[in-house]
Design a binder for these strands. Structure first.
Lengths: 320, 320
DNA sequence: CGCTATGTTGGTAACGTTACCAACCGCGAG
DNA sequence: CTCGCGGTTGGTAACGTTACCAACATAGCG
């Protein structure tokens, strides 16, 4: 008990005893067993479970960093798992996290079945969703202003005189893919532009698929003069294809690009790129902040949604 | 006990009893307490502690992913901490990890004091270092072929006829910074080129500092005609500055670049970029593999070093 | 000088789990 | 019919920790 008290701050322990305890701790290389600590009822484990869909994507790396920062500020650690968009893996991760007595969960949910996230399954463990919502699950959520960003980005192309604007994005079952498409579609129809299914490609998960989709689109008899790309992977793929056409002297338009998600050196691209930028790290910080406000009881029961704004960065030079 | 046996696989439990147990588990939303489990002597916690220096850097995100993959294949989870190159924070993380009974540690070490990593402090917990070595610490380590990559990259510039080649990199106390500088220096002196301190800048930690360093270098009366950049952050910074000069019509050379670390769309840059590429995810996988070979006892006592090869990607077009 | 108040110390129990052991069951062989 | 054996079941203890309580020492006060 004296050791426990000393390590807990030393209240009501004589200073010379504390000194002897600390000396023994140093000599023995003693570390307090945190697992045994959290075994006692009511004791938090100090762990936050974080599951994201793709750690290789720098956006999620930054997201994880934001969560880790806030967790560290509150004296917690994060256990991190990668789901790879596989909901079986997500289920497995969540149940492992709960088994390790995490104080809370932060997820970028996959699109599959979400029965394992229902309150009756999670018990007292608070959950915060990031980036995506889960249908029918009313919990704290941090989102980006996907619709507004996509709308404003598309409008900037329309303002520049484009009317035939292609769309590259995720399939509609992905939450952000659906929202960003909605923003695009809304801008197009509001301005009387036609959304032609021939220049809408919504099933690319990686850079290569995005390149192929851009190529098919630009090889049409009536290719788009501009492309709205709904995420980083599609932007990189489209840009690769555009660069290839320029290098190889392929005739046809050199489409302007609007990219939802930033990428480095976008200002040096051979065609003008408008970037819809956002702060993944802030998204992570915000998710963690929501979680901790639950943990310290400073939030009422109602589920909250935070929608973070996006900013639009126009190309430095008017055209290439 | 019957519940424990059922959940452990059901050996020597009647099938109908197993069924009743599983039904109760489902009904009650029961999760086995992993912390209590690992409390019993000899039981592993199933956790691997991972501390990296900068999760915002996509390389470390990929590194963490590689570790996570291999850990998941072995049924473990990772606890992740970000040190931000702060060795006090590293110490704190390591002692917390040990307090949580991690089965092993994987670190990208900071450059400070490393007393907390000595075997007598870590006890039985195996440690693997990644990317960097710690002076005087003889443990399993995964490195890149920094010297060889930097050497070959520099040689490619010399072969192209450059003799005045600038260097952008980390200060020499950073392990990789030192090694990459060595490769550069070795190539230069071997070929009789002069390493001029005026075009060597070794103290940039972020993109902005790298831009400023590149600017100062290119503003010299005798600017370099090519630049060797020792890491991703310096490459991006240098490229920004080069792009700015092209855009603003600043007179002077448009230096060719060799970049240690890949970046996306390097083929679309306005000056030719040679990339010294490597696989951070593989680095993570390799580190985890070393760790697990310790854990299952299949490695003998001697510390091992794995040096992963790098590949060199030349620009698609000879010049811009 | 005795009483109380305060500070200090350590004994005990409980958290959830599983290794070990003891008890019990039914079945087949002698 | 009895004995022994393998399969099944649950009691007990222990892992390391801390809340609670009891015991004790000391100081202050009347």
């Amino acid at each position: 008990m004296t050791v426990s008290r000393t390590l807990a701050g030393g209240r009501n322990v004589r200073p010379d005893v504390q000194e002897r305890v600390m000396a023994a701790v140093r000599e023995l290389g003693y570390y307090r067993n945190e697992n045994a600590r959290s075994l006692r009822p009511g004791q938090p484990s100090g762990l936050i479970g974080v599951a994201i869909t793709n750690l290789a994507n720098p956006y999620y790396g930054n997201f994880a960093l934001g969560v880790e920062e806030v967790a560290a500020e509150h004296g917690r650690r994060i256990i991190l798992g990668n789901t790879g968009e596989d909901d079986a893996r997500e289920r497995q991760l969540v149940s492992d996290f709960i088994g390790r007595q995490v104080d809370g969960l932060i997820l970028v949910p996959t699109s599959g079945d979400a029965a394992h996230l229902r309150p009756e399954r999670l018990g007292e463990v608070p959950l915060v969703l990031a980036s995506r919502r889960v249908p029918g699950l009313d919990v704290d959520t941090v989102l980006l202003d996907d619709v507004g960003g996509a709308y404003r980005g598309t409008v900037s192309l329309l303002d520049a005189g484009h009317t035939r604007i292609g769309f590259l994005g995720n399939r509609s079952s992905v939450f952000t893919g659906e929202r960003r498409y909605r923003g695009y579609e809304q801008a197009m129809t509001e301005r009387g532009a036609v959304v032609d299914p021939a220049v809408v490609a919504r099933d690319q998960q990686d850079v290569d698929a995005a390149s192929r989709a851009a190529r098919a689109m630009l090889d049409l008899d009536a290719p788009p003069t501009a492309i709205f790309s709904a995420n980083n992977r599609n932007t990189i793929g489209a840009m690769r294809e555009i660069g290839r056409r320029i290098r190889d002297g392929v005739p046809g338009p050199r489409p302007a690009l609007v990219s939802f998600d930033d990428f480095e050196l976008s200002e040096l691209m051979p065609v003008p790129v408008t970037v819809i930028d956002h702060d993944a790290r802030l998204l992570g910080r915000e998710a963690a902040t929501l979680l901790f406000s639950r943990l310290d009881g400073s939030a009422d029961d109602a589920a909250r949604t935070v929608e973070l704004p996006v900013s639009i960065e126009f190309p430095l030079s008017p055209a290439a």
